[in-house]
Amino acid sequence: MGKVYLVGAGPGDPELITVKGLKLIQQADVILYDRLVNEELLSYAPKAARRIYCGKRPDHHSLKQEEINGLLCEFAKKGNVVIRLKGGDPFIFGRGGEEAEVLAKNGIAFEVVPGITAGSAAPAYAGIPLTHRNYSSSVAFVSGVKPLESNADEYWKHLALGPETLCIYMGVKNLPDICENLIRYGRSPKTPAGLIHCGTTEDQQTVTGTLDNILEKAAGIENPAMIVIGDVVLLREKIQWYEHMVIQDSFPAKIVSG
């Protein structure tokens, strides 16, 4: 029997993978990797290692989750070192928990190797601290997928009046609903908001505004993008650092703010 490692590949910059994650890639027999994994990381795997793309885009999955689960079990039962390489962190909107459940049910040894999630890394690269003693003492990581209609009122009321900082994953498509509902359930229309596209990479683009104008300012921004809502977004004007470094190093930067 082999072993499965659920490895977080980090948010995009290949240098942000953990040392442990990189060492495991170097020992892999099989790697099943997601769309948001920087493929530069695959070059560290042995040449003989099998590489299987499992990417998911909105409304399109190259492999269904059930198929991925089956492959993890199949390769492990054949004695392989199997790396399930996921963008960000396996247990933060990465379905790592579901895969771990399947592995445990089938008696397959596994290990979870945490990674840096885009929810913290992308804002950091955009110069937006998620907490700050003068602005925010609470933060929530939130899925941008619409909640079930049966609990929508309570859901939006909690987000609008609860955590001071919201980090919203997979929310670009639903950004109009997100802004509308947060305002409807109690957040000020003038609450600062930002979108960070392709955070931590050379293609990073950051757009800032407020709940009542971010739709206009972020027109054209596509996935992958993190949405950050809260007063901490104001700090970007003071402490943005990555774009300045990018300009100094002479590789592409896209800066939009307001």
Rank of each mutant, 00 (worst) to 15 (best):
A124T: 03
N223I: 11
K3F: 01
R50F: 03
T206R: 03
I31N: 07
D153L: 05
T208S: 11
Y5S: 05
H244N: 15
V30T: 12
V232P: 07
A219K: 14
L148R: 12
V4P: 01
R236V: 06
V233E: 08
D153Y: 07
E40N: 13
I255S: 12
Q27D: 14
K23D: 15
P14Q: 10
K56G: 09
L182M: 13
G107H: 11
K56T: 08
L36W: 12
I196A: 00
D34A: 09
S188T: 02
A225G: 04
A118P: 00
A118M: 01
D177Y: 11
D89Q: 01
C179M: 10
Q204I: 05
I17R: 06
I108Y: 09
F141Q: 01
N223F: 12
L22D: 08
L72D: 05
W156Y: 14
F110M: 07
L103V: 09
G127I: 05
E39P: 01
G88N: 08
M1K: 13
D59V: 11
A225E: 04
A118W: 00
C198V: 08
N223K: 14
V81R: 15
N213K: 09
Y5L: 05
L72T: 08
V172I: 15
A193N: 04
V233Y: 02
L85Q: 07
D231L: 05
S250P: 01
Q27S: 13
F141G: 00
A109V: 06
A152F: 06
L130K: 01
R51H: 00
A122V: 01
E149Y: 12
D212C: 14
I168A: 02
H60S: 15
Y155V: 05
E164D: 11
G258M: 14
P147R: 11
E111M: 03
A49M: 06
T206A: 09
N80P: 00
I183F: 07
V142D: 01
W156G: 07
E99N: 11
T165N: 03
A76T: 07
K190C: 04
E67G: 14
E237I: 03
K47I: 10
A124M: 04
K3D: 02
A49W: 05
V246D: 12
N134Q: 13
P192D: 07
T201V: 04
A28W: 11
G79H: 04
E222R: 15
I108P: 06
T208C: 10
V142S: 03
C54H: 02
N134E: 15
K77I: 02
G8T: 04
V228W: 06
V30D: 08
C179S: 12
E154K: 12
P123N: 00
D89N: 00
L130W: 01
T165Y: 01
T210W: 10
Y155S: 03
S257R: 14
G115S: 08
G94H: 07
I31H: 09
